[in-house]
């Protein structure tokens, strides 16, 4: 079901964007804070991309961070090229652009194979792809620097990186919102709901799945390239890190799987939750974080966005339903 943005929603969105736009201009906001916010925006971008396959299409990808690593490494390799000493590396924009393209093309090639698998088989195949790619990068020392990694020419302009990521995330969310409203977006949801039915109704499911998987790979590759440039250093263990996928899954689940706003709201909430718990419950913060997430998944299966959807589901009604163990309306599928 398409969620329509009401007047209040548009006002909140507009106000939020204004606040985010003026943040770097405030004296109280340090470069360290901007760096953290930029990393959060990167995580939001990855989660939005993960949601295209995991949320809209129903293919839960446990290896999505592989595209981030490929984008990061392609950018790093191109920017740190050397010829007998002097650096002849590419400029950042073409290097990051090609990094995204390589990630997108590889996603198309690998997706044609892995997206024939269903459910946990697909998830595990993608996890395997992720681990294998990290090891390929580690053993290809001549090109990738191996376990030692690669250093990129530094350019430490935190506000610029912040604004670039903000614009990219805003554009990506707008694109996702638009895509969901097209027939292409509806076809993705149809595949998630009933792939055989969708195929029988004329939808070439393989083409749709591989297209969206490639788009997600390309976009995550772009965020990977930007991250590498901003970080000025890559090695296999920081470019290919499982937590990036786990954060995307958790953020999307928390915000609302298969919704446009879910990955944004969920990832921001996850970052905020971590900061609060880290500051107040240092020793127990991971336990509390895990417990809270279980509670949220149990009580708000549609995520935070589901709390304000147009059907008027609220925490109170969910709590009441839990106490009375009454099925949700959508579960009453066989009423006489």
């Amino acid at each position: 079901m398409r969620h329509r943005l009401g007047q209040a929603g548009r006002a909140v969105l507009g106000a939020g964007l204004i606040v985010l736009a003026i943040l770097p201009l405030l004296p109280a906001v340090s470069n360290a804070t901007l760096f953290t916010l930029t990393l959060m925006l990167t995580s939001v971008g990855v989660a939005v991309n993960w949601n295209l396959t995991g949320g809209f299409t129903g293919y839960v990808d446990f290896g999505h961070a592989v595209w981030f690593g490929i984008g990061a490494y392609t950018t790093a390799i191109l920017m740190s090229l050397q010829s007998n000493g002097p650096q002849i590396g590419w400029a950042p924009i073409p290097a990051i652009g090609l990094g995204a393209l390589v990630a997108g093309v590889l996603a198309a090639a690998i997706g044609r194979i892995t997206m024939r698998l269903k459910g946990p088989y697909f998830s595990i195949a993608m996890l395997g792809t992720f681990v294998a790619m990290r090891e390929i990068v580690r053993v290809s020392g001549g090109l990738t620097g191996g376990g030692v990694g690669l250093t990129l020419p530094p350019y430490l302009n935190r506000p610029l990186f912040y604004y670039i990521q903000l614009v990219l995330v805003a554009a990506l969310v707008t694109f996702t919102w638009w895509l969901r409203r097209t027939r292409f977006g509806s076809a993705l949801v149809a595949i998630r709901e009933d792939e055989i039915g969708a195929e029988m109704r004329g939808i070439n499911t393989t083409r749709f799945k591989v297209t969206v998987f490639s788009l997600a790979g390309l976009s995550t590759g772009l965020f990977g390239g930007l991250w590498a440039y901003q970080n000025t250093f890559v090695d296999p263990d920081i470019a290919f890190v499982e937590v990036r996928t786990i954060d995307a899954v958790m953020g999307t689940m928390l915000g609302g799987l298969g919704t446009v706003a879910g990955p944004v709201v969920g990832t921001v909430a996850l970052y905020w939750l971590r900061e609060v718990l880290w500051a107040n419950l240092l020793e127990y913060h991971l336990i509390v974080q895990g417990g809270l997430l279980i509670v949220i998944v149990l009580f708000i299966p549609r995520g935070l966005v589901g709390l304000v959807d147009r059907r008027g589901t609220s925490v109170a009604t969910l709590w009441e339903r839990w106490l009375r163990r009454r099925p949700a309306p959508e579960e009453k599928r066989d009423k006489p």
Binding site: V189, I196, G197, A198, G202
Partner: peptide
């Protein structure tokens, strides 16, 4: 086999 999360109208639009 219908798409349970989509509206009745969307189910038809996709067919």
């Amino acid at each position: 086999r219908v798409y349970p999360e989509l509206t009745v109208s969307e189910n038809l639009e996709l067919s």
